[in-house]
Design a protein around this nucleic acid. Structure first.
Lengths: 202, 202, 202, 202
DNA sequence: CATGAATGAGTCTTCATTCAT
DNA sequence: AATGAATGAAGACTCATTCAT
């Protein structure tokens, strides 16, 4: 009966990842102890080490499987959408929705990751890979818009893309930190307005 | 001669803060040890504790004295400048210049602070206070621009201000993390262009 | 068919012992894990515990069945041999042959056992029993030689016997540790020469 | 006051080594805990790590400073002695005396070292270096005896030397393990008698 | 004031052993 | 009988903080 066992193992793995995420969100990576994680998912410390080789391995997996998929996710969720402008709009909407409803923890996980990035090169590389992934995707969309004549030709796709990505993560951080005065919907509107006037052909 | 002693103490204090900053930038707050800091400024561990009551106190002071002064700094450096638009331009220039030339370490210190913000509420509050400070200042500038008729009246000062601040910190993080593809000058140009078209009266 | 099952069980048992021996020789008793042993003989950890009640039990059995039989072995292999001198010669030959050809692992197993003897009284007792057994046997041979007039009457059988046994184990240890400069054949020759001149009637 | 401090530190270091030796003799290296050692010398665990970088470092130092000096010791203690034969006699006497009176713990420390030799290559190398050292010294003595005509020319110095070293360590092990029937004085007499008849010119 | 040795609680990780399937 | 996932106690090592000198 390998099927059942395999499924069961995967469930355990996810349970551990969930527990770890919760704990990390609560006290950060360094202050979180392996015992904390084990407790929260009702396993023993020893059991954890059958699924992950180290505390750091858990963090890295979390990065890969939760944060690292952002580029893929964006691509998948915008594939059917019509023109470049609709795709950009869609991306921003997804971003706002994710932050508020779908994955409210992901924002804080990003915070945890940034916190570790200084001390752990692998974490940092994960963040940078995510950055490149999103930037690549966004630039491609913008480029298409320019080629099709929808956007003005002087816009620099990569610069605008990285600008948007920086903005997104900046917002995420302050949002995750509960900064008062971050109003996602109004920021969304303002950004869209700015981008539109910037990209529109005079 | 209390004056000399006072001065001497302050020098020591700054030396410790500088050393701590260097060490934190190198390995992050958690992995940095008090010994590391003491070594780097040529003092003994014991001596450190006569100037700061704890490792965390050093971090907090660093936050207050180096990061927390951003709002004041912006205000001071733009006070003499002409109109609202010139002030905004000046702010962005200062930001770019600081990142590249003046205080290249400050960017990474911000990264350290973000890393600690999850585990240390005081650090987080410091970051949020800095956020509010800058946003307050920027909104005031924008509001003046609207009132004077330089900017279009529909713009929301606080939203635009917080958007800019989020963008600034997002750029800072990736810049501090050495993300390839962050070109400060071109980002600057694009931002200014976007903001201008957004704020300009039709 | 209980006979077959019995045989099967014994084979398993021996397989485990062989695996354990290999693992112990590789990393010593303490560093060897029960998983190591189980892996090497293709069984599960659980299965091991149906044959031996503990890791230490495996070691003890190994001692009894592999090291502890040295006295019996010597006796059996020299039983048909002519006089006392021939028997002593035979013993030394067996020793050298065993070290080099027959049981090259036994030497290292002795090393493992000595390593454990400090921490495990039962292991130590096993070693001491083996010592007594061999000494008993050798003294008997020497005594016979004295009685028969082959050896000089002033020789002390037990002292010579224990001396030889100490020498044998000393050689074994350094041999097992790959000491350069241990040349079994030349040591053999020298020992035989020394013993002969010591035992010979003037 | 560097003199006092230096001396004090060295005393501490020796105290730790003594404590470690005691603990190792009691339960072997692997089963001994760093806490055990710290307790026995009245220090905290942390303090230990200011003097030795790891548990294994303590063991290695013990090997170097207590076991590894055997060759030097032999050389120093026999330097003034007359001819080769007197030197060999002296060596054997020193050996017996050391085992019984001077350094009764050293024998057991050798046992500990042998126990670790399988799992720790550095320990094994230490033992082998000690072996080489003693063998070198003894062969030199024997060679001088042959050259001076005191010993018969067919004797092989290195073989006899390593044989004696193996015998010595074999005796030490069984002595340290409290084997009944090890009578040092009578073994000494028998060995001397055997060696003499082997080395004497017919 | 400064030093730096000492403390000891706290962390990650391992592994012999058990037991539900 | 066999499996191997789970347990959890135990151990090496770190480091913020204190305090005698």
């Amino acid at each position: 009966m390998p099927k059942v066992t395999e499924k069961h193992k995967e469930q355990r793995r996810q349970a551990i990842l969930n527990a770890a995420e919760q704990v990390f969100l609560g006290k950060g990576y360094q202050l979180a102890t392996v015992d904390d994680i084990a407790c929260r998912c009702g396993l023993s410390v020893g059991a954890l080490y059958r699924y992950f080789i180290s505390k750091s391995d858990i963090m890295l997996t979390l990065m890969d499987e939760r944060l690292g998929r952002t580029p893929d996710l964006l691509e998948r969720l915008t594939s059917g959408v019509g023109g470049p402008w609709a795709q950009i709009t869609r991306c921003v909407d997804i971003f706002v929705l994710a932050l508020r409803v779908r994955h409210p923890t992901t924002g804080r996980l990003l915070l945890v990751a940034w916190g570790e990035s200084l001390q752990d090169r692998v974490v940092r590389d994960g963040l940078l890979r995510r950055f490149s992934g999103v930037v690549d995707y966004l630039s491609a969309v913008i480029e298409r818009g320019i080629k099709s004549g929808d956007f003005q030709p002087n816009a620099d796709p990569r610069v605008l893309a990285s600008l948007l990505m920086c903005l997104a993560d900046g917002v995420t951080l302050y949002w995750a930190a509960n900064a008062s005065g971050i109003e996602l919907q109004r920021i969304r509107a303002t950004v869209m307005s700015m981008v539109q006037s910037y990209l529109s052909v005079q």
